[in-house]
Simulated scan of single mutants.
Amino acid sequence: MVILNWNGRDFLRRFLPAVLAHSEGATVFVADNASTDDSVALVRAEFPAVRRIENSGNLGFCAGYNQALAQLGPEFRYYVLLNSDVEVTPGWLRPQRELLEARPTIAACQPKIRQYSADEVQRQLFEYAGAGGGYLDSLGYPFCRGRLFDTLETDTGQYDDPRPVAWATGACLLVRAEAWHALGGLESEFFAHMEEIDLCWRLQNAGWQVWYHGGATVFHVGGGTLHKSNPRKTYLNFRNGLALVFKNTHPAELPGVMISRVALDWVAALRLLSQGQWADARAVLRAHGHFLRHLGYWRQQRRKFRPRLRLAERPGTYAGSLVWAYFGQGKRKFSELGVKEPGR
């Protein structure tokens, strides 16, 4: 298990004790991305059972994990990527590990993700980063069971069932080491945001499955590095969103998807402008500019991973438009979408 850290001293002190107490059979590493606080000293002094990896710089989420996991030996069959701002619960790891042991075609899995809060009502809400399992709509927009855009559902047990999904959250991801190395880990050019969706989509195109297991729950603070209103996060989400669908969409479906995504991104930029969010609107334009300047690289990556799954073949995919369902039709719950899974 590897916890990637950058200036997360307070999170480590708050959440590491539960990780050590409730992660039976796991070896815990903290991989530090050249923090400027005293995170490393804290781990060394207060958590001697935790192994330390010191990365060469602040490499971001993607390259940081790639560099850290490259240093682990062949004795580890599974990796757990765990955010430093996640509170784990007793037995949280066992159901996922048993699922991968029983089904060798599954490469990655996540537990149920709920909001971390001191307020008990807030703790019953699903959390943005993964909730009850990750889905994609027909244009590659991500959403979750239990979370559509900014609308969070209360957990009443409605998403306790294990099932294949489109993506599993990078906040708490169990991944088979064999599959991780076969695909080269995370896309380092993403830096952060949507990298787990890209990894899971590539895994599925390579013939692996990705699952959610609602038999275990963890609590996520969220926004520990970049708040959702930060223009830097807007930039990364829009830039990586274009690259995500360009890399992974089936050739026959790619032109229509890209044209629609670009058009909707411009609509989003105009909406941000109308709300006075100038920095965020500029971030959308900068994201498009970066994508176009690096189009040669993304074409190379697309050829390398050879997307093969059509929309109707992809688990965890909504055949309609999430944007239209949410903003046009007022649908606020996953159950209102009528998502049909392949083979069901």
Rank of each mutant, 00 (worst) to 15 (best):
G130P: 07
D280E: 15
Q204I: 06
L152T: 09
R13D: 09
Q71W: 07
S117N: 15
V40M: 08
K304N: 02
H181K: 04
Y128I: 08
Y135V: 03
W6P: 05
Q158G: 08
V262D: 03
W6R: 05
R261L: 06
T89F: 13
A268G: 06
K247D: 07
F238C: 04
T105I: 04
A325E: 12
E187Q: 08
A252Q: 09
N240H: 11
N55S: 10
L16D: 02
D155Q: 07
E46L: 13
A325C: 12
S274Y: 05
D265T: 02
F291E: 01
V165F: 03
R299I: 03
G222L: 15
L148G: 01
Q209D: 05
F61Y: 07
L99R: 13
C144E: 09
L309H: 09
C62G: 05
V284E: 00
F246W: 14
A177Q: 14
L244C: 09
E253M: 11
G130T: 06
H220Y: 11
G133I: 03
L309P: 07
S23H: 08
S260N: 05
G241Q: 06
L59N: 07
A107W: 01
V86G: 03
A31G: 03
S260V: 02
P90G: 12
T151S: 11
T225F: 12
A49D: 12
L236K: 02
P95A: 04
G330M: 13
D38S: 12
W324M: 01
L69D: 11
L139D: 02
D119H: 12
G57I: 04
G241L: 10
S56V: 11
H227V: 13
R286E: 00
W266G: 04
S260R: 14
R293W: 04
E127D: 12
L337E: 05
Q115P: 05
E98S: 03
I3E: 07
F29K: 00
F190Y: 14
K331D: 12
R286Y: 00
K228S: 15
P142I: 06
R293E: 01
